[in-house]
Write a protein that binds this DNA or RNA. Structure first.
Lengths: 215, 215
DNA sequence: GAAAAATATTGCAGAGCGTGCAACAATTGA
DNA sequence: TCAATTGTTGCACGCTCTGCAATATTTTTC
């Protein structure tokens, strides 16, 4: 049991409002097109004042983009840093991200609405990625620790280590974007979870590398 | 001689205005901080009316982010598609991007101002990447042709081919981001060009893959 | 080289965004 | 139940961005 769900009336209301806003903005944007949705309408739909909207999101786009995934439980993290679970860096990273995708705090409905919107307005997609910078930086730190653990000789050259960690992270994010885009384009009736597509993308990446290395 | 520079008074003025706006917005943002720059000030500095600003850029951020690189000359492109110059996909892609970086139409001064701004406001960095979607899509098309050329058996499965091309492109963009971020952080006095850093990043990527493939 | 056609710039009006502030309301903890 | 804390709301204000019509500039045509 990781966390006993931190409640209190206040916290529950906050979460509910946040979700109501997201549902409202996504639904309206799908109904009548992104540019014809005003904060006022969203607020009416979500049953809050326009002013309150801005207590939750800095902009309409932010509300649509949604939050970065929460980071993972410490236990899983430590396993990764220590070189597990498989020992192959990219595969382990893929698993990490796949689990993060599963732990999304958004409701399934919200996720699907967002997916629909992403295929209709591809630039939102890019925007969401841009908003993941914090997550990216967290990930870089973790990767850095793993690399240091894997090869102690890298640890002696902090600059190289940092650079390497960033490269690995950014490449992994490339695979993440790939998974996302495939998932978004996939058949709507087959409700393959994002996590599965993630593992698939990382598999493909591995193949690519092996093939490239042979050449 | 690739192109005799398409001129005409009109075209020249357009280019000059565009550059003037970019210089103005970058300089002001560095001087007094991003959020304290208004369109009105930028326009005054660039010697145009505020209304005209929006004939050139859709927003302040767009003016700061700048344009995607123009795409490359056809000759170089065809060489790449046909499997050259080195035969190694990732290396060739790296070269392609490095050349694109050199062909930037922005003045050196603009590039340096932007670099400074990127280190001071990292989210602009992410934003610029997000704005490269069109370039990314162009690149995906080219990679797709190269892949079809490299391995005819892939050509028979268009879905796999498209997915593969997208993965390669996104991974390459990961390396591109890496190069950019290293270059932005690098010592200002050493004016190593971005292109050099790009080749370095792609080299590291190759090493990474070889190492990973061995494991 | 002057008139006509094409294209750019500008001002204006107006809808919408986003923030600071202060009043008010709800939740929490004692 | 009272006091402290935290959340919501309305209001005012400045800035963003667009459509439109008038004006100015460049290009084309003859």
């Amino acid at each position: 049991m990781p966390a006993p769900e931190p409640v209190g009336l206040r916290e529950r209301k906050r979460v509910a409002t946040r979700q109501a806003i997201q549902r409202a903005v996504l639904q309206l944007a799908l109904e009548r097109g992104l540019e014809h949705v005003t904060i006022e309408e969203v607020s009416r739909e979500a049953d809050i004042s326009p002013r309150t909207f801005f207590n939750y999101f800095v902009s309409k786009e932010a509300a649509i983009a949604g939050d970065s995934p929460d980071f993972l439980d410490d236990e899983q993290l430590e396993t990764f840093v220590a070189g597990g679970p498989s020992g192959d860096l990219l595969r382990d990273l893929g698993d990490l991200l796949a689990d993060a995708a599963d732990h999304a705090s958004d409701s399934r409905e919200t996720i699907m609405l967002r997916r629909e919107l992403h295929t209709r307005y591809p630039h939102l997609f890019a925007l969401r990625m841009a908003g993941m910078k914090a997550f990216e930086d967290d990930l870089t730190k973790v990767v850095s620790r793993r690399l240091a653990n894997d090869s102690p000789e890298l640890e002696k050259d902090p600059e190289r280590l940092a650079s390497r960690a960033r490269l690995v992270t950014l490449v992994a994010f490339g695979a993440l974007r790939h998974a996302w885009s495939c998932w978004a384009d996939a058949d709507r009736s087959s409700d393959q979870p994002l996590a599965a597509q993630l593992r698939d993308s990382f598999d493909q990446l591995e193949h690519l590398l092996v093939q490239s290395a042979r050449a």
